[in-house]
Design a protein around this nucleic acid. Structure first.
Length: 258
DNA sequence: ATGTCGGAATTATTCCGA
């Protein structure tokens, strides 16, 4: 079973690209973030024709998350409880094998911006939600764009960026709280010393220079970790395909022996 | 080069967010 996460940066602009990737990689469950589309504009039938059931929690212009699945999943959660006003950023579903949550965490802009404490509060809300509604002793995958670099290995320039947005102790503490609760970073667990990124700025040839960040994650509980075969940061899909423009994020997927 | 995108508001240009 192949599970994936991908911040697509606008579904209308990315639909053909996403379909190309689905056909090529054949994932079973996908968490998508940054749809930037109203729910009633979501191209449900296009995904159904490609073989996927869809669950969507979205809004006009910004944010928006969805779950695509080969087998229909049961919708469990739409929106992070207590944090709904910060946008459509969480959706959760369940299959017979596992619970699957996908999130688009707030960016925060900069440490001195009023969005920064809101970002931290959003993570605190996520932590409280997990503690209340989920168990580290069950099969759970939490994936998405966390908008933070957990360690110096996850950023191209810790020296310059340390203490700045995505690189602060406060954000890293929030990430560590998720780990302490019972989630593992599936990529880092499999590849402790690899330096690979999942996001590169559109500007300044950052992708070509490999000036990236690893901010897109698949986190899993112990029951998931035991089933991991491989974890792939699918860098090839940060490159143009047939003239189609890419997201600034690339997909990340895990193969599980279910 | 504050260098690129996607989307909204408004109608080809500017703004906002990332």
């Amino acid at each position: 079973m192949r599970l994936a996460t991908w911040n697509i940066n606008g579904l209308r602009a990315r639909l053909d690209f996403v379909l190309h990737w689905l056909k090529s990689r054949q994932p079973d469950i996908v968490g998508l973030q940054e749809l930037k589309i109203e729910e009633d504009q979501f191209p449900r039938r296009v995904f159904e024709a490609a073989g996927y059931s869809t669950l969507v929690h979205s809004q006009k212009a910004w944010n928006g998350v969805a779950i695509l699945s080969r087998d229909p999943m049961e919708l469990v959660t739409e929106g992070l409880p207590g944090q709904e006003k910060y946008g459509a950023r969480l959706i959760g579903a369940r299959s017979k094998e596992l619970s699957f949550l996908t999130v688009y965490c707030p960016n925060g802009k900069s440490v001195d911006h009023s969005d920064f404490p809101l970002k931290l509060a959003w993570f605190d809300g996520l932590q409280a939600f997990l503690e209340k509604e989920h168990s580290p002793h069950k099969a759970l995958v939490l994936c998405g764009d966390l908008n933070l670099c957990p360690s110096p290995k996850d950023t191209w320039n810790e020296k310059v960026s340390k203490g700045k947005i995505f690189h602060t102790p406060e954000e890293r503490e929030r990430f560590q709280s998720l780990i302490d609760w019972g989630l593992m970073d599936l990529y880092r667990n499999k590849y402790p010393d690899e330096i690979k990124y999942s996001w590169w700025d559109y500007r300044g040839g950052a992708f070509h220079l490999n000036q990236g960040l690893r901010i897109d994650f698949l986190l899993g509980t112990e029951a998931i970790v035991q089933r991991v075969q491989d974890v792939v940061i699918d860098r090839d899909y940060r490159k143009k395909k047939d003239g189609m423009t890419t997201s600034d994020h690339t997909p990340v997927y895990v193969d599980l022996c279910f």
